[in-house]
């Protein structure tokens, strides 16, 4: 028998244990990306197809480097949490935990690799 009352279990932060934190993060990062993405699409699309010297000049420049770094970090966090939502909808148990870990790892690897490339080009 459980001694917690129904009211006590439903109170505060709900089934997730984190309340609306996840949803709120998605909203905040969505607004940030709404500002970042249009400019980034231009910078990336314009650089794609050019020679290495032009590419390094674009992403080594403070504007290109900071913009791309921001896009990488914010979008990969947004992706990890978004993919987590999908995984939690369609899977259960060990699959759910494993896939969430995998998706967060992938997001971190992409972020770290991209940031390393940016630092190297900016040097």
């Amino acid at each position: 028998m459980r001694y917690l009352t129904d009211r006590k279990r439903a109170e505060r932060k709900g089934a997730s244990g984190t309340g609306t934190e996840h949803h709120w993060y998605m909203s905040v990062s969505a607004v940030a990306l709404a500002f970042l993405i249009p400019t980034f699409l231009y910078v990336f699309g314009h650089a794609l197809g050019q020679g290495r010297a032009e590419v390094v000049a674009t992403f080594g420049h403070p504007f290109g480097a900071i913009l791309t770094g921001l896009v990488l970090f914010v979008s990969m966090q947004h992706f990890a949490k978004g993919a987590q939502m999908m995984i939690e909808d369609y899977t259960q148990g060990s699959w759910r935990r494993g896939l969430v870990m995998l998706v967060y790892s992938l997001a971190y690897v992409i972020t770290a690799t991209g940031l390393y490339a940016l630092v190297k080009m900016a040097m």
Partner: peptide, 12 residues
């Protein structure tokens, strides 16, 4: 993003 970051790493 994977393809793009690979391309950035290549450029670096």
């Amino acid at each position: 993003f994977i393809l793009g970051v690979w391309w950035l790493l290549g450029a670096a």
